[in-house]
Design a protein around this nucleic acid. Structure first.
Lengths: 114, 114
DNA sequence: GCTAGGTACCATGCCTCACAAGGTACCTAG
DNA sequence: CTAGGTACCTTGTGAGGCATGGTACCTAGC
């Protein structure tokens, strides 16, 4: 049974989305729904809120982000997420891990190719 | 709590190792222990047999590889794994998914960088 | 008022898969 | 006949993506 591209992406996302969220916070604090829209835009990195909110809760519990509530002029209040120092360090660790991993997969896919 | 690089790799591997195994079979049939040593060599793609054998069993059940037993001159018989047509197609699907995913992560990590 | 629809948040449960740990069996060397 | 290397496999645990469903706030239209 040949798997679907969507199923493949689901597994690839695991462990990377988390840090893409952290990376998106380097530009300044943001709130859940906004982050979801950013990362869902290309249809590759994220797939809806069912992924994001549990993820944000984990980041908060781990101390990689901190949050504060802020009123909105058009709707309910928003919970804004901001990177902590630990969050920045975690992101750096990820970047150090991602680069060799990406290269290893690339070269694995490249070898033996016709 | 800043996660370890090893823990990050564990999550990244998910869903990619499987296809690196398939890719390694494009060069011809191979057996479990040999595949494990190949992919463990760089310390990035795989982490031992506990990952490999369940993975190979899944590939076999899905019809992406087929196997035959062969005597060894130095030890117990080996089960050789070879790509099927479905396996080749699955690998192509993965390659089509991997490329945009990799780019999305790269550009996500790149934006907002100092 | 009051209902509809958009915005925003969150919790629950399922399923998959990496990994650790432990087990079986074959072969060779001393 | 035991030690160690080779080779295979199974079981259980835990993490995390995602589907689903639910709560609450706000504005617009009537």
């Amino acid at each position: 049974m040949v798997p679907s591209e969507e199923g493949i992406l689901t597994n690839l996302r695991r462990g990377a989305v988390e840090y893409c969220v952290l990376a998106s916070l380097r530009g300044g604090a943001s709130y859940g729904r906004d982050i979801a829209q950013q990362l869902s835009a290309d249809g590759v990195l994220m797939n809806g809120e069912g992924t994001l909110y549990p993820l944000l809760a984990r980041l908060r519990k781990s101390g990689l982000v901190e949050t504060h509530w802020q009123e909105s002029t058009s709707g309910p209040p928003r919970r804004y997420y901001a990177l902590t120092g630990e969050g920045e360090r975690a992101l750096e660790v990820f970047i150090r891990a991602w680069s060799p991993f990406r290269s290893a997969v690339d070269s694995s896919l490249g070898e033996g190719e016709q």
